[in-house]
C-alpha cells in the first residue's frame, strides 16, 4: 500500500476540503521540517494482518515531498508562482516521474488544498474535534483533540508550533489506523534529505494520460506488475 492510499484511509473522516484557489493562506510561515512517520493499520478479524509502514515527510515553502522508508517511491507537490500545483509520483529507482497535468486536474475533479498538503489537516478538520488536553510530545507542545466523524472515533495529537500532527488515530468497526510521528527536525539539519528538485527534473517524465498508450513500456509494465503482485 502506498502512502497516499494509506492516508486516504486514515483521513477519511475529514471535512470537505477547499480548493487551492480559494485559499489565500500562505505556507511561508510554516517552518521547514523533515519528519519521519510510522503508519499502522490493524483490521479487525482473526486472520487479517497488521501492516506497518514508515515514511518521510519534508516541507518547505512551495514544496511538500514524501518518500517510503526504502526510498523507492515518493510523491511531490509543488506550488508554482501563479498558484498552480504540480503533482508527481516519483519512482526513484527508475528515475521516473508520473505527472498529472494541470489541465487534467479540473477534469478529474482534482483540487489541492495547499495548507492541508502542508499540514495534513486543515483548521476546519481540526476544529471539528473537541480539545481534550494540552501535553508535550517529542519535547514540543501538543494538543489532544477527539471526536466522532462518520462513525469513526478520531484522536489527533496536534503540534501547533509546526502545524503538523504528532499522531492521528482512527477507529471504527473495521479496524484501527494510526499515524505516528517518530522524529522531527529542521529541514536544514536532517540527515535524510528530500530528493533535489533539479534531480527530479532530470527524471524521465510520463504524463498519466499516456499510460493507455504505453502498454509495451518496460517501466509501465513493471509498475503495473508490481502493484498487482502486492495486491493479490
Amino acid at each position: 500500500m502506498k502512502i497516499f492510499d494509506f492516508l486516504k484511509i486514515l483521513f477519511s473522516f475529514s471535512l470537505p476540503w477547499l480548493s487551492a484557489s480559494s485559499l489565500a493562506n500562505s505556507d511561508s510561515q510554516l517552518p521547514e521540517v523533515a519528519c519521519r512517520y510510522e503508519m499502522k493499520v490493524t483490521p479487525h478479524g482473526k486472520f487479517k494482518a497488521t501492516s506497518t509502514k514508515a515514511w518521510f515527510f519534508w516541507r518547505k515553502p512551495g514544496m511538500v515531498q514524501t518518500q517510503d522508508a526504502d526510498g523507492h517511491y515518493g510523491e511531490i507537490w509543488q506550488r508554482t508562482a501563479n498558484g498552480s500545483i504540480q503533482y508527481r509520483k516519483l519512482y526513484h529507482v527508475d528515475k521516473t516521474a508520473i505527472e498529472y497535468m494541470p489541465a487534467d486536474m479540473p477534469t478529474n475533479n482534482m483540487s489541492f488544498d495547499w495548507i492541508k498538503l502542508s499540514s495534513m489537516l486543515d483548521q476546519q478538520e481540526l476544529h471539528a474535534l473537541k480539545p481534550v488536553k494540552k501535553t508535550r510530545v517529542l519535547d514540543r507542545s501538543a494538543e489532544l483533540r477527539k471526536g466522532k466523524v462518520d462513525n469513526r472515533d478520531i484522536e489527533v495529537l496536534w503540534l501547533p508550533d509546526v502545524s503538523l500532527p504528532a499522531s492521528i488515530i482512527s477507529k471504527d468497526k473495521t479496524g484501527r489506523a494510526e499515524l505516528r510521528l517518530i522524529a522531527i527536525e529542521p529541514l536544514s539539519a536532517t540527515h535524510r534529505k528530500p530528493v533535489d528538485i533539479e534531480e527530479i527534473a532530470n527524471y524521465r517524465h510520463i504524463d498519466a494520460a499516456d499510460f493507455g498508450d504505453m502498454e509495451n513500456d518496460p517501466f509501465v509494465k513493471k509498475v503495473m506488475a508490481f502493484t498487482e503482485h502486492h495486491n493479490h
Partner: peptide, 29 residues
C-alpha cells in the same frame, strides 16, 4: 485501489481524504 466495488466514474469522487490527487480512475489494482 481508487474506488469501491460497483460502478466506476471517470472522476474519482472528491473525497474528504488526503489530497494526494484524484487522478481519475486509472487504477493500479
Amino acid at each position: 485501489n481508487l474506488q469501491p466495488a460497483g460502478s466506476k466514474t471517470f472522476t474519482t469522487p472528491n473525497t474528504a481524504s488526503w489530497p494526494s490527487g484524484s487522478e481519475g480512475h486509472n487504477p493500479a489494482s
